[in-house]
């Protein structure tokens, strides 16, 4: 049994959201009295592999591309659909929670379920795994198209919900010396964490640490990448750049130590507080650097434990 705290927003959503919120409502259906031959164009044009069979609003069967091929092979394409459709169909109700659909997909291995209105008994939609993933993504408002956020693989996302150990991965590119855009990564990450319903104190610590790290990439390196991995237990941020590397890490960690030129200081940065700040905000920090090769900074924030006293900059 996992505690309430452990459940990420995404996991909460599969309990909160209903089938009807993500299903496809624009249904293509056929009449049981139509002929099998009529399926040919429909299946080809709509690029679908199965069609619900509806009689006066009621779902009476499901006919698939396999059924059609069989008829074709047997030369019986002029018979009515009702003679060839499957009639024992597993359906879902419109107001069932998504988690129910997830379990049915998992249990049966089917690709789609017709959705029936619990009140009227009429067919109101079709739901696929893709619909669920899209619906969840839309709900947490993750824009796939944004260049900075590479879409994490939807199929994995789905498996993770089933496996109950959701890992969300966000990746961002940070461009060197681009002072106007600097901060966009941290801003994007902060907004995402907020939408996921993380505690605001944790969000603030993550945002500040990531922002400092982002500014380090902008100021000191030739560019780099920031990856955030979010699990129910922790948020881990990896900040990787390709050089020039830090010659003396111990020194770099000292508050006030800086190699920044004056022009950086005039932009409000480079006072030697960045790395100490990051350390102060995070629960764990690893810094690995090779001169000429680059730096890998890994910072972790615990989500499970109660916020420790002294961690974070509210102390």
């Amino acid at each position: 049994m996992i505690g309430e705290r452990d459940i990420t927003k995404v996991q909460e959503l599969v309990y909160e959201m209903k089938v009807e919120q993500v299903m496809t409502k624009d249904i293509i259906s056929v009449s049981p009295h139509s002929l099998m031959i009529e399926l040919r164009d429909l299946l080809r044009e709509k690029r679908i592999s199965g069609v619900p069979v509806v009689d006066e609003g009621r779902l009476v069967g499901l006919v698939s591309i396999e059924d059609f091929i069989k008829c074709l092979a047997e030369g019986e394409i002029d018979i009515p659909i009702k003679d060839r459709m499957s009639i024992n169909i597993k359906t879902l109700y419109n107001n069932e929670p998504l988690v129910q659909a997830v379990e049915e997909f998992d249990r049966t291995g089917y690709g789609r379920f017709p959705v029936i209105d619990r009140e009227s008994g009429e067919l109101v939609g079709i739901i696929t795994k893709g619909d669920i993933v899209r619906g969840l993504l839309k709900k947490i408002e993750i824009e796939y198209h944004a260049e900075e956020i590479h879409r994490y693989r939807a199929s994995h996302f789905f498996e993770d919900i089933v496996a109950d150990k959701t890992t969300l991965i966000f990746q961002y590119k940070v461009i060197s010396k681009d002072f106007n855009r600097a901060g966009q990564t941290s801003s994007g990450l902060k907004k995402t964490l907020r939408r996921m319903g993380m505690p605001s104190k944790v969000i603030r610590r993550v945002a500040i640490a990531t922002y400092e790290a982002e500014m380090n990439i902008v100021v000191f390196t030739d560019g780099g990448q920031i990856t955030a991995r979010i699990t129910p237990q922790e948020i881990r941020i990896d900040i990787v750049d390709s050089g020039p590397g830090i010659p003396d890490i111990e020194k770099a960690m000292q508050p006030g130590f800086s190699t920044a030129p004056d022009w950086i200081r005039e932009l409000g940065f480079g006072a030697g507080m960045g790395l100490p700040n990051i350390k102060k905000c995070s629960d764990q920090m690893n810094l690995d650097s090779t001169v000429g090769k680059g730096t890998h900074l890994e910072i972790t924030f615990n989500l499970n434990e109660k916020m420790k006293l002294g961690s974070g900059n509210d102390s």
């Binding site: 006030g256 800086s258 004056d262 200081r265 005039e266 409000g268 006072a271």
Partner: peptide
Amino acid sequence: DLLSDVIGNSEKGNIWITLQVHPN
């Protein structure tokens, strides 16, 4: 905390309050 600002706008005899500890 911005040196250019101090160069441009401070006046003779002012006491300067800053976070900067750099020799400059």
